[in-house]
Protein backbone atom coordinates (compact mmCIF):
# COMPACT_ATOMS: atom_id res chain seq x y z
CA UNK A 1 0.00 0.00 0.00
CA UNK A 2 1.13 3.53 -0.70
CA UNK A 3 0.45 6.61 1.36
CA UNK A 4 0.67 9.83 -0.62
CA UNK A 5 2.14 13.06 0.68
CA UNK A 6 2.34 16.51 -0.86
CA UNK A 7 5.22 18.92 -1.15
CA UNK A 8 3.22 22.14 -1.25
CA UNK A 9 5.09 24.92 -2.95
CA UNK A 10 7.43 22.56 -4.83
CA UNK A 11 6.14 23.98 -8.12
CA UNK A 12 5.24 20.46 -9.30
CA UNK A 13 1.53 20.05 -9.97
CA UNK A 14 -0.35 17.90 -7.49
CA UNK A 15 -1.35 15.20 -9.97
CA UNK A 16 2.27 14.81 -11.13
CA UNK A 17 3.41 14.47 -7.52
CA UNK A 18 1.00 11.53 -7.13
CA UNK A 19 2.20 10.00 -10.42
CA UNK A 20 5.86 10.39 -9.37
CA UNK A 21 5.18 8.83 -5.96
CA UNK A 22 3.61 5.74 -7.54
CA UNK A 23 6.47 5.40 -10.03
CA UNK A 24 8.97 5.82 -7.18
CA UNK A 25 7.17 3.22 -5.06
CA UNK A 26 7.27 0.80 -7.99
CA UNK A 27 11.00 1.35 -8.45
CA UNK A 28 11.70 0.87 -4.77
CA UNK A 29 9.44 -2.16 -4.57
CA UNK A 30 7.13 -0.71 -1.92
CA UNK A 31 4.33 -1.17 -4.48
CA UNK A 32 4.21 -4.56 -6.20
CA UNK A 33 2.11 -6.10 -8.97
CA UNK A 34 -1.40 -6.81 -7.70
CA UNK A 35 -1.27 -4.14 -4.99
CA UNK A 36 -4.24 -1.80 -4.78
CA UNK A 37 -3.86 1.97 -4.90
CA UNK A 38 -5.93 3.93 -2.36
CA UNK A 39 -9.35 5.02 -3.65
CA UNK A 40 -9.86 8.63 -4.73
CA UNK A 41 -12.04 9.09 -1.66
CA UNK A 42 -9.26 7.84 0.65
CA UNK A 43 -6.65 10.14 -0.91
CA UNK A 44 -9.04 13.10 -0.79
CA UNK A 45 -9.88 12.46 2.87
CA UNK A 46 -6.25 12.46 3.92
CA UNK A 47 -4.81 15.23 1.72
CA UNK A 48 -7.82 17.56 1.22
CA UNK A 49 -7.22 17.67 -2.53
CA UNK A 50 -9.61 17.66 -5.48
CA UNK A 51 -10.80 14.11 -6.37
CA UNK A 52 -10.36 14.92 -10.08
CA UNK A 53 -6.64 15.35 -9.37
CA UNK A 54 -6.42 11.78 -8.04
CA UNK A 55 -8.42 10.42 -10.99
CA UNK A 56 -6.19 12.33 -13.41
CA UNK A 57 -3.06 10.84 -11.80
CA UNK A 58 -4.55 7.33 -11.99
CA UNK A 59 -5.54 7.83 -15.65
CA UNK A 60 -1.98 8.89 -16.42
CA UNK A 61 -0.59 5.80 -14.65
CA UNK A 62 -3.09 3.65 -16.58
CA UNK A 63 -2.02 5.27 -19.85
CA UNK A 64 1.59 4.39 -19.01
CA UNK A 65 0.50 0.80 -18.45
CA UNK A 66 1.58 0.75 -14.81
CA UNK A 67 -1.82 0.27 -13.21
CA UNK A 68 -5.26 -0.91 -14.28
CA UNK A 69 -8.69 0.11 -13.11
CA UNK A 70 -11.01 -2.80 -12.31
CA UNK A 71 -14.62 -1.58 -12.40
CA UNK A 72 -16.22 -1.59 -8.97
CA UNK A 73 -13.04 -2.83 -7.31
CA UNK A 74 -10.39 -0.15 -7.58
CA UNK A 75 -7.05 0.55 -9.21
CA UNK A 76 -4.33 -2.10 -9.10
CA UNK A 77 -0.66 -2.34 -10.07
CA UNK A 78 -0.40 -4.39 -13.25
CA UNK A 79 1.58 -7.58 -13.44
CA UNK A 80 5.09 -7.45 -14.86
CA UNK A 81 5.71 -3.71 -14.66
CA UNK A 82 8.59 -3.47 -12.24
CA UNK A 83 11.41 -5.65 -13.66
CA UNK A 84 12.36 -3.54 -16.69
CA UNK A 85 11.92 -0.32 -14.73
CA UNK A 86 14.46 -1.45 -12.16
CA UNK A 87 17.00 -2.41 -14.83
CA UNK A 88 16.51 0.97 -16.55
CA UNK A 89 16.92 2.65 -13.22
CA UNK A 90 20.31 1.05 -12.59
CA UNK A 91 21.57 1.73 -16.12
CA UNK A 92 20.45 5.39 -16.10
CA UNK A 93 21.89 5.96 -12.68
CA UNK A 94 25.28 4.69 -13.88
CA UNK A 95 25.15 7.01 -16.91
CA UNK A 96 24.18 9.95 -14.71
CA UNK A 97 27.02 9.17 -12.28
CA UNK A 98 29.47 9.25 -15.20
CA UNK A 99 28.06 12.62 -16.30
CA UNK A 100 28.33 14.02 -12.77
CA UNK A 101 31.97 12.85 -12.48
CA UNK A 102 32.79 14.43 -15.85
CA UNK A 103 31.13 17.72 -14.92
CA UNK A 104 32.94 17.89 -11.55
CA UNK A 105 36.24 17.14 -13.29
CA UNK A 106 35.48 20.05 -15.66
CA UNK A 107 35.33 22.36 -12.62
CA UNK A 108 31.58 22.75 -12.15
CA UNK A 109 30.22 22.79 -8.61
CA UNK A 110 27.07 21.13 -7.25
CA UNK A 111 24.97 24.22 -7.80
CA UNK A 112 26.05 24.38 -11.48
CA UNK A 113 25.09 20.74 -11.90
CA UNK A 114 21.67 21.27 -10.39
CA UNK A 115 21.04 24.26 -12.66
CA UNK A 116 22.08 22.31 -15.79
CA UNK A 117 19.89 19.38 -14.78
CA UNK A 118 16.89 21.65 -14.13
CA UNK A 119 17.34 23.42 -17.46
CA UNK A 120 17.57 20.07 -19.31
CA UNK A 121 14.40 18.86 -17.55
CA UNK A 122 12.58 22.09 -18.38
CA UNK A 123 13.65 21.80 -22.05
CA UNK A 124 12.42 18.20 -22.16
CA UNK A 125 9.12 19.24 -20.57
CA UNK A 126 8.66 21.93 -23.18
CA UNK A 127 9.27 19.43 -25.98
CA UNK A 128 6.65 17.25 -24.33
CA UNK A 129 9.07 14.43 -23.49
CA UNK A 130 8.82 14.57 -19.71
Amino acid sequence: MIEFSLDRGSGVSTYLQLVHQVRQALRLGTLRPGDQLPTAREVVESLAINPNTVLKAYRELEREGLVEGRPGMGTFVRHGVTGATLADHTRLRRALQAWVDEALAAGLDQEDLRTLFTVALADAARKGVA
Binding site: A40, R41, V44, E45, A48, I49, N50, P51
Partner: peptide
Protein backbone atom coordinates in the same frame (compact mmCIF):
# COMPACT_ATOMS: atom_id res chain seq x y z
CA UNK B 1 -8.98 25.21 6.85
CA UNK B 2 -7.65 21.76 6.03
CA UNK B 3 -10.56 20.06 7.85
CA UNK B 4 -13.23 22.18 6.14
CA UNK B 5 -11.72 21.50 2.71
CA UNK B 6 -11.48 17.77 3.50
CA UNK B 7 -15.22 17.69 4.20
CA UNK B 8 -16.02 19.46 0.94
CA UNK B 9 -13.58 17.38 -1.14
CA UNK B 10 -14.87 14.11 0.34
CA UNK B 11 -18.39 15.05 -0.74
CA UNK B 12 -17.25 15.86 -4.29
CA UNK B 13 -15.57 12.42 -4.41
CA UNK B 14 -18.84 10.71 -3.47
Amino acid sequence: RHDVMRSIMAETAD
